[in-house]
């Protein structure tokens, strides 16, 4: 009788463990559209931070949800991903915003020269500040 109880509780524990393990393994990606932004700032500001001290900016912005406001200088679709480029006060550097597949469908509505607010995950700075999984918030 006692043995039976032990076996049953062990089975329940094993099942729970497997369930939790499976849940962790399949942990979903961050949903940028529903999450609140960690940092809210302008295109000029984030670029200035990266050009002043890249290491400091990396620590501050990488993998964070960034909400950035700027003027659209170009839009395009490459490899089925919509890209919105925000101009800055630097002639060469921009903010490159790669859209999510769903948001890419709305890119034709975005006109050059308009002000826009986007939310995305910052992955770093090459020639430009790169944001991925972007959604348009305004």
């Amino acid at each position: 009788m006692k043995l039976k109880k032990i076996i049953i509780s062990a089975l329940i524990l094993a099942f729970l463990g497997a369930f939790i393990g499976y849940k962790i393994y399949n942990k979903p990606h961050v949903n940028v559209a529903t999450e609140k932004a960690d940092v809210v700032l302008s295109a000029d500001q984030i670029l200035a931070d990266f050009t002043t001290d890249e290491a400091v900016a990396n620590a501050k912005y990488l993998e964070k949800i960034i909400q950035v406001k700027g003027i659209v200088s170009e839009t395009k679709i490459e490899n089925n991903t919509g890209i919105i480029i925000l101009q800055t006060n630097d002639d060469f550097a921009t903010i490159l915003c790669h859209l999510t597949p769903q948001e890419t469908k709305n890119i034709s509505k975005i006109k050059k020269g308009r002000q826009i607010t986007l939310k995305g995950i910052c992955t770093g700075f090459l020639m430009d500040v790169v944001l991925v999984k972007c959604v348009i918030t305004n």
């Binding site: 399949n26 942990k27 979903p28 992955t123 090459l126």
Partner: peptide
Amino acid sequence: ILMKSFMFEKALMQEHFNENYVESD
């Protein structure tokens, strides 16, 4: 190449890749 720009199917794999394997910080 930005290491954090590598997108994985599973979020956990991406986390392990960045934190434990390539140490992208």
